[in-house]
Design a protein around this nucleic acid. Structure first.
Lengths: 191, 191
DNA sequence: CTGATTTTAGACCTCAAGTTCAAGAATTAG
DNA sequence: CTAATTCTTGAACTTGAGGTCTAAAATCAG
């Protein structure tokens, strides 16, 4: 019983996620969150406890959406190299398509809060590990399919791929599309 | 004439740089800066105008120190691959050696402010371009020395190297030394 | 309908961030 | 020494961040 919620918590978290992603954690105020979700500040605090807790939920959602999309995208038809190449291009193009380049929420988080916030760093680490596992799995799939050499160390390549991806998202902040394409092509030349 | 400055502006900028680097731009308050520099808030404002302007000077200093050290380190005796490998290891180890992992100021800046602060993004871009030029020059040197294949596209490899470096600094936030070493080894295997 | 329970929304509070200022201290030209 | 000039500092100011609270609103069991 009791009065029913006037908003969908999951939807509010998703909207908060967008705001944190675009503006960063520090630069997002409770007022911003109220505006983004259409829920009054008081209600947000009632439902989520604090800005930090709402952020934790937003980051968690981000990780789940991201790995879901990654898995889906990598598993479409094609060789491992083709799919991974397309994936990197997709990420870059998506970021460049928006009104502001906002990179990756997880990465932004660890760069902004990593030093001070142990739990944020752990949450990001979990997201990274999941991504690496997906990359490794796709490379191993490629080996089974015969399009990736058996001698390749899938784990090491997956780790490097995640690193390249992270670097690419930094470069996307300040370089233009042709340069970024060139980086992707160079990075995957050796696969 | 007039009363002489009670502090060395360049020294204060260096101290401010350390603080911004460790805590991030947002999380650094004027009080923090006063404490770090040993100069009263009022004097800082008198000398530098605003937090943002002091930060601009700190970032500029960071870029100059960084490219100077990089140039010096890369030009020590050894092959291009050896020097670059040692350089990546040095950066990782230096970051891990500190009490907090603080990554790269330029990169932290563009991730924290990139979306909102055009000028910060441009400043970081200049730093990145300088680094890429240094890498390219060192690879070309290797080609002249005969330790790098002539067929290598130095510009493309330099761009990729900067990307890998950026990614590595993200990974350094959440992964431990052995993993990071493995990434470096994998990244440079193809050189 | 009543009472118990939960949510809402905005007023309210506290504190610190970022900046300005006023009054004084140090220096030098004349 | 005086005046002009520049620098110093702690206090004062303004604003908004982050969070609490309360009165009203909505729901449902009995």
């Amino acid at each position: 019983m009791g009065r029913p919620k006037g908003f969908e918590p999951d939807v509010a978290v998703a909207q908060a996620m967008e705001t944190f992603w675009t503006k960063g954690y520090c630069a997002t105020s409770p007022a911003d969150l109220a505006e983004a979700t259409g829920v009054a500040k008081g209600s947000l605090y009632h439902a989520f406890g604090s800005k930090r807790e709402l952020f934790a939920r937003a980051l968690d959602l981000y990780g789940r959406i991201g790995s879901g999309q990654t898995e889906e995208f990598l598993s479409r038809p094609g060789t491992a190299k083709e799919r991974i190449h397309a994936y990197l291009v997709l990420l870059v193009d998506t970021d460049l398509a928006g009104p502001v380049r906002r990179g990756c929420l997880a990465q932004n988080t660890v760069e902004e809060l990593g030093g001070r916030d142990e739990e944020a760093a752990r949450a990001v680490h979990r997201i990274e590990e999941r991504m690496i596992a997906l990359f490794a799995a796709r490379i191993e799939q490629g080996q089974r399919d015969g399009d990736v050499d058996r001698s390749v160390d899938a784990g090491a390549q997956a780790l490097l791929l995640q690193t390249t991806l992270a670097g690419l998202r930094v470069m996307t902040r300040t370089f233009e599309r042709p340069v970024l394409r060139r980086i992707i092509d160079t990075a995957l030349a050796g696969l």
